[in-house]
């Protein structure tokens, strides 16, 4: 299968510290890859470089054979790449429905003038957005809350909402930074279920997560980071038995 994403010698230095140190890996189409590692290992920094939030000190990211590094943040959605944030970024003052409808932006062709004159395309676009949003809200079981202000939802539901907003336009690659953090067991299982469901439909995932049971269950491949370096890579089975990983990070109690 073709490589969807290739990360080559990606490095980020913040002053004296090297947050990400010459990371190499790739992600195939339809694959679910997890990045794990202790706090401060550089996982979010790696994500931020892949999603063009910060420029790497050196190295590059290739997506579908083309250089991703150096692009503007907003271009990524148009290429089919979505992301969520470790510190939730939902639109608190908008309804759940509006939040998810925002996720459809890349599919809409409304501009200020067609909107102002209310050309027929605008109504069509609104209906497309509404329909897609409704489908996803049904899938993540948020339909009952669709007219509620997003800021008033529980943390768990807000996480689900951010996820829904990221997947509503049918992206190909979805980057999730700790999608299960702060969720209870039931919510965690539900989120894992959504990821599996989308994987079946051909979506690829790169996700950071601390909950090991979920990582083992979901990931086709795991990349382990410590102090900015990749210290291991392999199937969940291989990682669970890797001496280096166990001593550096997991400890005995994780299994």
């Amino acid at each position: 299968m073709a490589n969807l994403l290739e990360v080559k010698q990606l490095t980020k230095k913040f002053g004296g510290i090297t947050a990400v140190d010459r990371i190499d890996f790739s992600l195939e189409e339809g694959e679910v890859v997890a990045v794990i590692g202790p706090n401060g290992a550089g996982k979010t920094t790696l994500f931020n470089m892949i999603s063009c939030f910060i420029p790497p000190t050196s190295g590059e990211v290739i997506y579908k054979g083309e250089r991703l590094t150096g692009r503007k943040i907003f271009e990524l959605a148009h290429l089919g790449i979505s992301r969520t944030f470790q510190n939730l970024q939902i639109f608190n003052n908008m309804t759940v429905l509006e939040n998810v409808m925002m996720g459809v932006h890349v599919k809409l062709k409304t501009n200020v003038f067609s909107a102002g004159f209310r050309l027929p395309t605008v109504k069509k676009n609104e209906e497309i957005a509404y329909q897609l949003a409704l489908d996803v809200l049904e899938m993540v079981e948020l339909k009952d809350f669709m007219y509620k202000k997003a800021g008033n939802l529980s943390y768990g539901l807000q996480k689900q909402l951010e996820f829904a907003r990221a997947i509503v336009y049918h992206p190909q690659l979805i980057l999730l930074d700790e999608p299960m953090a702060g969720l209870n067991d039931a919510e965690t299982n539900r989120m894992a279920g959504y990821i599996k469901e989308l994987k079946k439909k051909g979506c690829s995932f790169l996700f950071v997560e601390h909950k090991m049971a979920t990582v083992m269950e979901l990931a086709d491949r795991i990349i382990v980071m410590d102090f900015g370096k990749k210290i291991a890579e392999g199937t969940p089975h291989e990682i669970a038995r890797n001496e280096k990983v166990i001593s550096a990070y997991l400890g005995e109690e994780a299994f």
Partner: peptide, 16 residues
């Protein structure tokens, strides 16, 4: 309105 709430998230959703 979404720019108001989170500029970063709005940008991530493909908005220039």
């Amino acid at each position: 309105r979404s720019i108001h709430d989170s500029e970063i998230a709005t940008e991530t959703l493909g908005v220039n």
